[in-house]
Design a protein around this nucleic acid. Structure first.
Lengths: 335, 335
DNA sequence: TAAGTTCATGCAATCGGTTGCGTTATCGCT
DNA sequence: AGCGATAACGCAACCGATTGCATGAACTTA
């Protein structure tokens, strides 16, 4: 395959001149530029990125870390959509995207360090679950820009991140339910250890107080993201004297359980009970009835994370910041 | 960050010697090797892979192409599992994995050519859906080894591929149903345009003839992979005089529809009707009742594809070949 | 002991680009 | 005509590794 020397020879110039026309230097005459470009076409020449990397000290590559321990990113179609968004921006920048798995539990940052030390990557996008202090220390030490997916919690350091606006998303879901006439809304699926869950609860509460409703703590149920627990809590809620007429589920699996519970107690959805869950299109659409959800544009989430990363790569002075992606309501059949 | 010269200087040797100890050349004395290694630790040295790439003319990188148009790989958790399997082997080889999206419809191979011409990749794993003749031509022209995921169909060229053993998988599902006492088994979800679907039908038919059953063509239904079509065909099948007592569904969405149909006709699962579908754990487990499936070890599928790719990378004389990944039955509640 | 081997290591070119600095030719101006 | 300025390009060093060949020392062997 042709290299820069071949082009130079064929065009009767030096490699410097070829290099400068490739990089669009102003000090080359239009005539020679055109000649060189036509030679490049003829020879089917493309610059060798490896060589470019070596001289420019850039890998033209960014890395997406995936948390293999996290069932969420692991089995979830979200993951691919996020990657797709990242990929779009990365290729627009003529970079390529490398993917590496890492386990949050084994605190093993070796892959990252390996990539960095081998000079294989210019930046990293990683789930907040993996962003320990040790990880940050490594990234800072080697001066590698990074962006977290998900708002990091309990960090001294300030970092760049993007996350879903879970609070506002839940608020909007609440307003939507109010609008549809639902008045006694419960919240199913609180998980105090997870920020997104707490944020969703915040939205739930703030919407209630905005609308002058009281907060009934028994309407707020802590449970795992499983169909089973969703079912049990829903049964329990529905058998109270004062039962809810709508439910916000923190997860689609929970919503499946809740729907099953409604079916067993012969409550009609959405007439007797409204249900809104968070988005997992595949599950939401296959459910019967189909689940109305808070829709999260995860493609956009990925895209924005990549954008932030490149801002850091291009301007190392750029200060870190957080960004919230707003949501919308995807109306289906349960509300 | 320390480079090979720093190490050489600190150890009082030439860079050649350092390079040779890194690459485990036999012609370096044990004493100096040890000294150099200890210096390397001290200086926290890792070889610059970019430089290595330039001299060795290898990128130490392989590329996974994803078909963005294919809803299947796109939304499907399978995708991530495949990638995970690939990734495992790739990192074992001290390569890194780059991911690129491509659309099968727009026949746009630019990303691949861009990666190849930029010398960014040593090999490609790509879905058979994308493996057009034009694509093969490009890959061959630049001498880039590649492996298809899915058995390619209608190609003159012989290529390497890995696929799920859909025929045997369906056969085994049939044997399992026979064993459980089901006798009149239908096949829901034939899609003649897709090889995997035809292979599943082959398995269905061969199991029937093995067991001396007749093939009732009305028991074989062509339909799309949607809940809706699954539902309609199932209703139709169940209202026949001679109705099936078990169904093999080519897809979990279809199975959801089938289950809904059984519910409406008050048929009990698995007592009155047995159902086996192909694996999509997330859907299978959230269904009520949970769906018994033909389990596909997609992690293994990915791993094997990567293995094949490296065989081609390491030995360009290696002939292309196909590999089938065997399946197993994951018993849940529907059969 | 001189010549031939073997062992351990260094020299320098090379991979394919980039870039600071120097060089040449042309032009404008006095 | 002479001089400085400017435009357009080339030279050569450099990025961080690898490797064929050369070299010197130690060791064999006759």
């Amino acid at each position: 395959m042709a290299n820069i020397k071949d082009v130079a020879k064929a065009a009767g110039v030096s490699t410097s001149t070829v290099s400068r026309t490739i990089n669009n230097s102003p000090s080359i005459s239009l005539a020679t530029k055109e000649r060189i470009f036509s030679v490049m076409k003829e020879l089917n020449y493309s610059p060798n990125m490896i060589a470019k990397s070596l001289t420019n000290n850039k890998s033209y590559t960014v890395t997406l870390i995936v948390d293999v321990e996290d069932e969420k990113s692991y089995q979830n179609p979200f993951f691919y959509e996020i990657m797709h968004g990242i990929e779009r921006h990365v290729y627009r920048k003529e970079y390529s995207l490398i993917v590496a798995n890492l386990s949050s539990t084994q605190k093993n940052q070796s892959v990252i360090e390996w990539l960095i030390k081998g000079k294989r990557t210019d930046g990293v996008i990683l789930p907040a679950s993996i962003l320990s202090s040790a990880m940050i220390e490594i990234l800072r030490k080697y001066n590698i820009p990074f962006v977290a997916i998900g708002e990091p919690v309990g960090l001294k350091e300030s970092v760049s991140w993007v996350d879903v606006d879970n609070k506002k998303g839940t608020e909007n879901a609440m307003y939507y339910l109010f609008e549809k006439g639902y008045r006694n809304i419960g919240f199913l699926g609180l998980n105090k250890t997870q920020l997104f869950s707490r944020k969703r609860l915040e939205g739930y509460k703030s919407a209630l107080s905005d609308e002058q409703h009281e907060i009934d703590n028994d309407f707020i149920r802590e449970c795992m993201n499983t169909k089973k627990e969703g079912y049990q809590h829903m049964i329990d809620l529905l058998q109270r004297d004062h039962r809810p007429d709508a439910i916000i589920c923190a997860d689609s699996h929970i919503a499946f359980g809740a729907i099953k519970a409604c079916g067993e107690l012969h409550l009609r959805i959405p007439e007797d009970i409204g249900i809104i869950s968070y988005d997992n299109s595949q599950l939401a659409e296959i459910s019967d009835p189909e689940i109305t959800t808070v829709y999260v544009d995860v493609f956009e989430l990925g895209l924005q994370s990549a954008k932030q990363l490149f801002e850091l790569i291009e301007d190392p002075q750029k200060i870190d910041q957080g960004l919230l992606i707003s949501t919308s309501i995807k109306v289906r059949e349960t509300a």
